[in-house]
Design a protein around this nucleic acid. Structure first.
Length: 109
DNA sequence: ATCTTGACTACTC
DNA sequence: GGAGTAGCCAAGA
């Protein structure tokens, strides 16, 4: 495995892992940071393999702050519970004050 | 190599 | 303004 040929997934994992506590980001933001702005779907897809890793996938949501991927978690409300536990207000799978808790890796990293 | 799929996003109606 | 359609890219079969 070549260093410069790091899998897209691995890059996503590294970025997602650096998401600060109590913050969230969007798939598109991560994809943009990786240089693949149009691969937002891939980011989410990558999260699919984040299970068992230190990747806080629950901090990654779509650009609307909606917990679209909550179904991929164990429980249906686990993702929301985790976010709320970090201080993020989530109501009905929708992150409140998304703009405030939003964390852009391309700008803050 | 071709086709399908997917935790997305943006544009249109 | 809610819902539908299309475009995108990368990975797996």
């Amino acid at each position: 495995m070549k260093p410069e040929t790091l899998n897209f997934f691995d890059k996503v994992y590294e970025v997602a892992r650096q998401i600060p506590y109590g913050r969230v980001t969007s798939y598109g933001a991560i994809a943009n940071y990786l240089g693949a702005a149009r691969s937002a779907r891939m980011v989410g897809y990558a999260m699919n393999g984040s299970a068992g890793k230190d990747v806080p996938a629950h901090r990654v949501v779509n650009r609307k702050g909606l917990l679209t991927g909550k179904h991929h978690f164990e429980g249906t409300n686990l993702m929301q519970q985790l976010l709320e536990n970090e201080g993020v207000v989530v109501i009905d799978n929708q992150i409140q004050d998304f703009n405030q808790v939003f964390w852009d890796p391309a700008k803050e990293l």
